[in-house]
Design a protein around this nucleic acid. Structure first.
Lengths: 113, 113
DNA sequence: AATATTGGTTACCAAAAGGTAACTGCTATA
DNA sequence: TATAGCAGTTACCTTTTGGTAACCAATATT
């Protein structure tokens, strides 16, 4: 009798993949934290994260906006000012990130003992 | 006054990255679950996950062994039998995966409302 | 005797992610 | 008038990740 990854498992995995898509990658969490810390202007965020470039930042910000983690607001001052702010919803990621963090901290102990 | 991602944040991020390295990627969690479910032989695991190939499986298994999520045991039967089993430690990932899962489930509701 | 199964490895490719640097039109400052 | 800042965009390149298919030496099955 052949074993399989049950269908229940597979479907339970979709949301796991979704979450990983939202937070994995080299910069996403970094950018989110930068905005949580109060950085709001494009160049400000860019400068706050060493080695992050405009191209990547622009792409990630679009992504994060789609996922409703941040809001992009255009203020029609002269010149136009654009501000990125974290949504209340984005804060729901804190718990997830904390879990990842805690596991990672312990994992180092496990690996380097 | 220029804002920066504080050093504390940066260093707190290393463990988050570590964890993501261990669990992200297209197959890792799938393979872990397959082994949790009782699949132990190489071909058995391979067959249990549609589209997974030997090459990728071999690589991921090595990775997971390094991270002490699984154990590779060689039984000197004729012919040699090799078994992969999940470590007790691997179970500590369940909580993390659950967090990712729960957030993902809710995220779908948020996005498609 | 021929074919399948075991646990992989190898060489070659394709796609995705990320990096580099130049450039845009606009405004503000020196 | 020259330079710098703003919020990006564009073309091109490299690295990482994953996929394809063939192959190995052994044993087991038909």
């Amino acid at each position: 009798m052949k074993k399989k990854v049950h269908k229940e498992c597979m479907s339970a995995l979709t949301p796991v993949r979704d979450t990983l898509d939202v937070i994995s990658g080299k910069w996403k969490i970094l950018i989110l934290i930068s905005i949580w810390e109060g950085n709001s202007r494009f160049r400000e965020i860019e400068r706050s994260i060493p080695k992050l470039t405009s191209k990547v930042l622009a792409k990630e910000l679009k992504d994060m906006e789609e996922h409703q983690l941040i809001k992009r607001t255009v203020y029609d001052d002269y010149p136009v000012r654009i501000e990125y702010t974290a949504t209340t919803y984005s804060r729901s990621l804190e718990k997830v990130i904390k879990e990842l963090h805690d596991w990672g901290v312990n994992h180092r102990k496990v690996i380097f003992r």
